[in-house]
């Protein structure tokens, strides 16, 4: 009986490992393609590259300001994350702790914006940015994600979970709302803040439609946009395109390597409602 169980476990692990290797393989293939010399790809792929070269990377950096583009992606994603954490946690505090008139109605308005997809907003936002002459600026890239109704919603749940006795005690001690917010509520809402940070960063890092609409100059491009432009210009230079893909995977893969536990927990948390 025991041997049977062990055998089954071995088969299970073997199947999982094969599956994981299959899932990883596209990444391996991307790297292999990126170090293959020009002109040898059309003959069909080989696992072992004959004359591996970094030439595709040289070409990539000649064609696009890749470092600038990667820095843009990191900068915009970081700014989005910081801004969303700040604006959402402040709003969450107001909705959870401040009994101002019209609170329910205003919260309903926030929730309503949550239901409206970006596609509905793209055309008028583009027109608005054109009128304000803000197209092709960092501000335009950031603007639609400064505040996040999703973030407010997520953090309000968390702030509601912080025991009110704590702030009442602080109030008696003469603490202001700003103090209660910064010293009691924020530290206790940390897991939810981490979840929001993961979502804000990832969605900014991945965002494509809005940058595609609002950015024109290569100096302002983010990675998805730069790659798409590269792809549009050099359709069949697969080694260069894959070099671009590798370059844009590296930063997020590094972040993932260090924070994977939090990232996976953040995603998993979104399902446990």
């Amino acid at each position: 009986m025991r041997e049977h169980v062990t055998l089954r476990k071995v088969a299970l692990v073997a199947a999982l490992v094969i599956g994981a290797l299959l899932m990883m393989f596209p990444f391996v293939w991307t790297v292999i393609t990126s170090i293959t010399p020009d002109g040898t790809l059309a003959a069909g792929p080989t696992l072992l590259v004959d004359n591996p070269t970094l030439d595709a990377y040289r070409q990539l950096f000649e064609r696009l300001p890749m470092l600038r583009i990667a820095a843009n992606s990191l900068g915009v994603a970081t700014a989005t994350t910081v801004l969303q954490l700040l604006t959402s946690s402040m709003a969450a505090y107001a909705f959870s702790r401040l009994p101002f008139p019209g609170r329910q109605a205003l919260f309903a308005v926030y929730l309503a914006t949550l239901m409206v997809p970006l596609q509905v907003l793209v055309v008028p936002l583009f027109i608005q940015m054109t009128r304000l002459q803000l197209n092709d600026t960092y501000f335009a890239l950031l603007a639609p994600s400064i505040a996040s109704a999703f973030g407010v919603f997520l953090l309000k749940q968390a702030v509601d979970g912080v025991p009110r006795e704590l702030d009442e005690a602080a109030t008696i001690d003469g603490a202001s709302h700003l103090r209660i917010f910064g010293q009691i509520v924020i530290p206790l809402a940390r897991p939810a803040l981490a979840t929001l940070a993961v979502f804000a960063f990832m969605s900014s890092w991945n965002s494509f439609l809005w940058p595609l609409v609002v950015v024109r100059s290569p100096e302002l491009m983010t990675l998805p946009l730069g790659l798409s432009a590269l792809h549009g210009q050099y359709t069949s230079d697969w080694n260069v395109i894959m070099a671009g893909s590798v370059t844009s995977i590296i930063p997020i893969a590094l972040i993932y390597a260090f924070a994977q536990r939090h990232i996976i927990a953040g995603f998993a948390h979104s399902g446990l409602k």
Binding site: A20, P26, F27, N206, P224, I241, G244, S245, I255
Partner: peptide
């Protein structure tokens, strides 16, 4: 193993599309 299966999730759609087009 879980991390391996999860890695494609953090990859952007544009990269995913390009890798698969290839």
């Amino acid at each position: 193993l879980r991390s391996a299966y999860f890695l494609p999730v953090v990859t952007s759609w544009v990269v995913v599309a390009l890798v698969w087009q290839w």
